[in-house]
Amino acid sequence: MTAQDFFFYIFALITLLPAIVCVFHPNILYAGLSLFGSFFGVAGIYILLGADFIAATQVLIYVGGILVLILFAVMLSKDIYGAKFQDEKKKKIMPIILGSVLLGFLLKFILTTPWNMTLTDEAPLPTTSRLGDLLLTDYLLPFELASILLLAALIGAIILARSK
């Protein structure tokens, strides 16, 4: 039970509890806010896995960007006459059953397949410069295609969102 395992369970809780709130809370604004906690838990998990640049990216893009966008959308799409955010009661039995069946399958696969893990316990090395080298050499094509995808998303979203 080293410190890493201890922190793993803490960050797992920080990720899962807000995610449960986000899925089951009737008020859409509180659901959006609980995502804030869950994204921080995922950032903590990334740090434990030694991916420090990915953890900072997670905080920057998800918390600073996507969550701001979702909250903007939630506030823009509110009904006009000050009605509260109540999400009509939709019976949630079927999704939960389906979800648990799916979870059962996933857990069976995870626990039965023999993963050839290489358990290394030396401290993780900083990753940013190695990521940069990989992006410039091995993953150059996806890197250049990324800008085309961003361009398409940018122009598409602006055309849709620009009020005539």
Binding site: L29, F53, L71, M75, T128
Partner: peptide
């Protein structure tokens, strides 16, 4: 002494917008 020092700083200060929206709302 983070290896991603300045990037961590950008990530953390990008959270202020969230707080302001909530405060205003």
């Amino acid at each position: 002494n983070l290896n991603i020092g300045i990037f961590y700083l950008i990530a953390i200060t990008s959270m202020v917008a969230l707080g302001l929206i909530l405060g205003g709302w």
